[in-house]
Simulated assay, not measured.
Amino acid sequence: MTSNQDLISTIAAFDLKAYLADRQPKVEAALDAAIRPGYPDTIYAAMRYSLLAGGKRLRPILCLASCEAVGGNPDVAMPMACALEMIHTMSLIHDDLPAMDNDDYRRGKLTNHKVYGEDIAILAGDGLLAYAFEYIATHTHGVSADRVLRAIAHLARAVGADGLVGGQVVDLESEGNAEISIETLMYIHNHKTGALFKSSVVGGAILAGATELEIEKLTKFAHNIGLAFQIIDDILDITATQAELGKTAGKDLQAQKATYPKLWGLEESRHQADKLVAEAKTILAEFGDRARPLQALADYITDRKN
């Protein structure tokens, strides 16, 4: 059994900066190649505008790292990684609309509907969502059909009413409710944010041929880091500037949303995020050196500034 001290030493020896410097350009190139300009010009331009607007590419990189953690070739998971970013981008486009969070900036640029109008922004999100599943089905090679099908099904559930959509609905319904419970807040973020994190980690593992026990452990890991990610997001909404965030700061307070700092305070929220990440890294201990990227990415979630 790997001790906590051994785990800390292993993570310290891993160069996450170099890992991201290698993986992020590969993801960017794959995304650029996945959706090329076409006709109608406007819809392809709108889809590419948001998809290629930058960002951490955390979900695709988690997918590749998870594939590696169970001994797979990350190249086979790249179509899944691209699909995850397409779906994440769809959720951001729709989230920024006036009917949702009504934001003007995302990743330091004008939001999609501010450039192309609300109608095209909705359709751009729809186009990305539909193409994500087509892309996994048509571009995943060297993997058995049953694994591809299972990965697609897992992702579809993460996006629908039992995942991202359901979480967004409860989030909207809870705005302005001063009595929202921590259980409801957990539900919102385990679905709105956490579900896609789970598909990122579990999807990569499924494509690599992970065992059921490995999938179970990686699901728990993903649950923890997804929740930690949202807690840090809530903290940054209060403590970071618009320049740091690349989007409007203080939106949660303005919309009277329930947040972890609002229920727990900043100090306890940070403590809970750190605790979740520590538990997540412990779960990975038995995966050995192959899980070093995932372990370092877990730390990155709580150390980030945007």
Rank of each mutant, 00 (worst) to 15 (best):
W264H: 08
D6A: 13
I87N: 08
T302C: 10
R57I: 01
K305D: 04
L294R: 14
D32T: 11
D233V: 03
A132M: 03
L64R: 03
T89I: 07
E286T: 09
G38I: 02
M80S: 06
Y187L: 13
L64A: 07
K26V: 01
R57E: 01
P79T: 01
A161I: 14
R59H: 02
L227T: 13
K26F: 01
C67H: 03
A83K: 04
K281Q: 15
E28C: 00
L97Y: 08
S200A: 15
G265L: 05
A46L: 06
A12P: 02
E212A: 09
E216M: 13
L164T: 04
L266R: 12
K262N: 00
L172A: 07
T10K: 14
N306W: 12
E279S: 10
A243H: 03
Q254F: 03
E214W: 04
A249M: 03
I232K: 13
I215C: 13
F229L: 04
G71M: 00
H141D: 14
E179M: 05
D95S: 02
H271V: 00
N4H: 07
N224H: 15
G203D: 07
N177P: 06
L92D: 03
L149E: 07
M90A: 15
I188N: 06
P40A: 01
D103P: 04
R292W: 06
Y187C: 09
I87D: 08
V202K: 08
D126Q: 13
G38M: 01
E134K: 07
M78N: 05
S181R: 08
G38H: 06
E267A: 14
E28Q: 10
T239D: 11
K281F: 03
A222N: 12
G71A: 02
L164R: 03
S199P: 03
A158C: 04
S66W: 10
A132T: 05
G160Q: 10
Q272T: 01
G226N: 10
C82V: 06
A240E: 07
